[in-house]
Design a binder for these strands. Sequence first.
RNA 1: GUGACUGUAGCUCAGUUGGUUAGAGCGCUGGACUGUGACUCCGGAGGUCGCGGGUUCGAGCCCCGUCAGUCACCCCA
Length: 433
Amino acid sequence: MDKIAAPRGTADLFPPESARWQALEESVHRIARRFGYGEIRTPTFESTELFVRGVGETTDIVEKEMYTFADKGQRSLTLRPEWTAPVVRAVLEHNLLAQGPQRLYYIGPIFRYERPQAGRYREAHQFGIECFGFAGPEADVETIALAHEVLRAHGLGVTVAINSIGDATCRPRYREALFAHFAPHRDALSPDSQRRLDRNPLRILDSKAPEDRALVASAPTMLDVLCEPCAAHFARVREMLGAIGVAYRVDPSIVRGLDYYTRTVFEFISDDLGAQSTVCAGGRYDGLVAELGGPPTPGVGFAMGLERFLMILAKRGVGASAERRGIAVVALGEDARRRVVPLVAALRRAHGDLPVTIDYGDGKIAAQFKKADRANARAAVIVGDDEVRGGSVVVRDLATRVQESLAATSDDATADAVLHWYAALPAAADAAA
RNA sequence: GUGACUGUAGCUCAGUUGGUUAGAGCGCUGGACUGUGACUCCGGAGGUCGCGGGUUCGAGCCCCGUCAGUCACCCCA
């Protein structure tokens, strides 16, 4: 087969699926704006160095998942595997922090070289926010509240799982405590966890291996070891989440994979996603801005996987029914078709919002009605030989099958008459009943 | 990167222990009905059986490779 297919782990998008994406994107823009966030767009590729420093040299993303290439000038570039590092880079490059705290959101693709499976693709799309300049727990809560609102706005009742992974003071202590707990039982751990023990003992906590379960359950939790400022911060986060009515559950096994997180981390999890159950995840990253060469600046944010979100909505059948809307122009014969072109233009000009379609083919009237019906048009405007001769158009309500004849004069006047008639139609739901 | 399962029409799928011109439903299209969507009836188009190799007198079916999809691991949105 010499047909070229889309690369592995990528997908084409077209109607009616693309309409679901548009609806989600619009709602996400609206909600971010409502929280006072402004959109940031950054290049699709960046210097490889940005991700190595920003995400962490020993993370899986950097070690094996990046699309890295050399351009013709021998620069090493990488397709964006995540948004936080590029956003920080842009904020620093344009010195936005000089103007005070920044609330930014983004929506767009990321690229990771992974084996595709449910909810995982090589090109995926994320919506997320980054809030810079607020060290207090209010910013953590606002971030969680925004994510919560996006999910809630689409009818998902969700509980956020939260944890604190401490800061530079207490996290090293916790690593030691974990190591001390697991090391004596090294041989009893799963092979993966034996490896984690040396590289990053925190990762053992979310192991799925059954042989690890008992040891994980008896392990000390981060919350036992938190330094006093971190403990106070976490307590305030919990208190305020309760105050704004966001349901949460403390889950000490949440550790997050990227190096830059500090203190609060959280995940929104869904049962509808199979093994990739996280639809949205984030946390605080107070060290990242300085790490990338900026002034020490606290930050907190999240990333939401749009494919995963849409997957949940599809599974729940949310937003499945499209309403009947718009006008299909039916022209019978070449003469009528020619004369109807200006009328179609006038209809589209007159009312920017209604879809106006026309079939330029030679199909007979029954076929054209069928197409209009399938396309979910509400009304048809019919022009045939009789109408051309008599100076009229027939307008038909496709929901009730009731039709009438309107006088046709100038194209603009006819368009007005048609739209006036359309505006008076009963609601589609009533019409169907 | 590891493992399992699956690739037949636009879609969903049949296809007997390997055996003539590969089928169905839906969709598309023409007609019955020469200007009205449903239903019914009759006709038509649409397939290099993912691709490459092998075994065989003969492969959609068996074997190997490869590409892709699906699911899980690792990891992550």
